Amino acid sequence: MSDLGADLRRETLISNADPADFLALLKPRVMSLVVFTALVGLLLAPGAIHPVIGATAILAIAVGGGASGALNMWYEAETDALMRRTANRPIPAGRVTREEALAFGLCLAFFSVMVLGLATNWVAAGLLAFTIFFYAVVYTMLLKRRTAQNIVIGGAAGALPPVIGWAAVTGSLAVEPLVLFAIIFLWTPPHFWALALVKSGDYGRAGIPMLPNVAGERATRMQILLYTLVLVPFALVPLALGFAGPVYAVAGFGGGLLMLVWAFAILRAPTPDRLARACWRMFGGSILYLFALFAALLLEWSAGRLAPLLPGGWA
């Protein structure tokens, strides 16, 4: 009877799952940033790629990113249940079983890598496979619960999409996509540590050694500022290398100034309420900053493609 009851409970969980729950396993908000940065990397790459092949490559990268999210949720289901921010995710909320999430994530990972390899090349596919492995195994399983530097090291996975997009066209690496990788890599700690400062109680209950829980609030504030001080000038490297122009300069200088203002506001916030407001401003604003940088590159690429079609462009 106990086995029958377990089977019935499993069937109930399966019947409660709907497409929206499986979509939630893919972490669609994170996936949107993955898709956008990969698209910019693909479009900036020298050479040509057929639009259908390019769209297939971006879809494969998006699915691979979603597979990482599903595997992350599978492994962290018990931890997610302890945190208010994640307790309503499909697995801890009981809408999807861990077994379903694992199978879903593994299938998506396999097919995304195979599709990217067959559609473009195996360098890009290998980078996608490495990204999924790094996020699901190195970051989620090995680092997240063992070191306060989990976000710093694990940020490499989230920084690889533009490199994969570039490799999908060229089959190789170059300085330009590696610079884009480094920008996202440096952006990740101040972005997520701002959230960690606000949600340190959640992370403490879940036993996750985020920097505020290990080094303390003051050290985390300083680390956010230090990383921002490195990020802002480094984000201007595309200008120095010549693959970014005036639109990017406006985003880089203007957005960088705002990032510094937000980081100093976190450092100097005198009360918990002021600190929370400053952290949320950094968390949300940093997303807009990174989006603005990559959107500027995309706009300048579009302008370059359209210039020959404008009056006088053939001269």
Rank of each mutant, 00 (worst) to 15 (best):
P246V: 14
G312D: 07
V261F: 14
R84C: 01
L306M: 13
F283E: 01
Y227F: 15
I224G: 02
G252P: 10
R305V: 10
Y75N: 14
A119D: 06
R98Y: 10
P209G: 08
T37S: 14
E78M: 02
L229W: 05
L231W: 06
G171K: 03
A48F: 09
R281E: 03
A103H: 12
A109F: 15
M83W: 02
L25M: 04
E78Q: 13
I287N: 13
A215C: 01
A38W: 01
A249T: 13
F104N: 08
I266C: 05
L310P: 06
G126W: 13
L299D: 03
G216K: 00
A81Q: 04
A57T: 09
P238R: 08
P19N: 00
M114Q: 12
A194L: 07
S32T: 11
V63H: 07
G126I: 12
P212S: 04
G41I: 03
W280C: 00
G207R: 08
V261S: 02
I14V: 14
P161F: 06
T37Y: 05
A244E: 07
A136N: 12
P246W: 15
L239F: 09
L257S: 13
T188C: 09
A62R: 10
V232K: 02
E11Q: 15
M73P: 03
M31T: 14
M222G: 05
F104E: 04
F130D: 02
Y227K: 02
L173P: 03
G117Q: 06
D18H: 11
A156R: 05
L102Q: 14
R221P: 11
V152S: 07
F253R: 01
W314M: 14
L293Y: 04
L43D: 01
P92Q: 06
L160W: 05
A240I: 10
L239K: 08
L288C: 07
A307H: 11
E176Y: 00
F294S: 06
F181S: 05
S2R: 14
W187G: 07
R268T: 14
F22I: 00
G216L: 01
V138R: 12
S32N: 00
L26I: 03
A17L: 03
L310C: 09
W122H: 13
G255E: 04
R205A: 15
N72F: 10
L127S: 10
G207W: 04
A60E: 09
D202Y: 08
E11T: 08
V137Q: 11
L197N: 10
R146T: 13
P92D: 10
A194N: 07
F243P: 03
T147Q: 01
K144C: 10
P212M: 02
F185Q: 14
I132Y: 11
G66Q: 05
M114T: 15
L195P: 10
S68T: 11
R89F: 09
A157P: 04
A81E: 07
R218S: 15
L225D: 05
F36R: 04
I164G: 02
A81C: 00
V138L: 13
F22S: 00
L257A: 15
G285V: 07
G69I: 05
L290A: 05
A109V: 14
L257M: 11
R145T: 11
A263D: 08
T170P: 02
I287H: 04
